[in-house]
């Protein structure tokens, strides 16, 4: 564990908690993409299957359980909670998320380190995580006016990605044989997807204005 990975995990945790707190306290999920949340639930469910087969640390196991629990809670709130579900922007959140799942599955079947069930699913989760934010970014562009919490959620998620890249650089420099092309490329693609959002986020912050994305 290094400081970059810890900072990445903490911003990731903060992003999910900000979202859960928003949904739980103001009973609204306006501006939140259910498609993205369902993709994250799939990402965690397929990546953390090793919870049953390998043990790394109490921290690792605990965080996995938190991410699984929080992502499925958010999906549950948005789909079934009687007040929250009415605030969901159903008509705007039209991204066909299955068009992301299938290519990622195909890619994981073709490009992986080992052809085993757990390894292919783990690789699939990396590919899917890289693009899972897309429905949320599309929804943000459509609704344009973004409330602070949704903006902070995406900002924190982007921060998590940035810290993980620093973590990989640090590990590459300090640990022998630490070369992981699949993780790195998927992670880099994911981080780049946030670049556009970050540009507008910082502009609105600099000008002290409400975040608005161009149509």
């Amino acid at each position: 564990m290094n400081i970059f990975r810890l900072a990445g995990d903490m911003t990731h945790l903060a992003s999910v908690l900000v979202l859960l707190l928003k949904i739980h306290t103001i009973k609204s999920c306006a501006g939140v993409s259910l498609k993205t949340q369902e993709l994250y639930a799939i990402v965690f469910a397929t990546r953390y299957l090793d919870i049953f087969t390998s043990f790394y640390s109490i921290y690792n196991t605990l965080m996995k359980l938190i991410f699984l629990g929080s992502s499925f809670s958010i999906v549950w709130y948005m789909r079934y909670h009687k007040t929250v579900r009415r605030t969901y922007d159903r008509e705007q959140d039209t991204f066909r998320h299955w068009f992301l799942v299938l290519p990622c599955l195909l890619l994981a079947l073709l490009i992986h380190e080992k052809f085993t069930f757990l390894e292919v699913l783990w690789t699939f989760s990396l590919y899917l995580e890289a693009v899972a934010i897309l429905p949320q970014l599309v929804l943000l562009q459509r609704t344009r006016n973004i409330d602070n919490l949704t903006g902070q959620y995406v900002f924190l998620l982007g921060g998590y990605r940035g810290f993980y890249i620093l973590n990989w650089i640090y590990r590459y420099l300090t640990e022998p044989h630490f070369v992981h092309w699949i993780t790195w490329i998927a992670g880099l693609v994911q981080t780049l997807l946030y670049a556009d959002f970050f540009y507008y986020y910082f502009q609105s912050w600099k000008n002290n204005k409400k975040l608005q994305l161009p149509a």
Partner: peptide, 10 residues
């Protein structure tokens, strides 16, 4: 021993 894999990450 250190695990030189990203599997120990989240």
């Amino acid at each position: 021993p250190k695990d030189h894999s990203t599997k120990d990450e989240l």
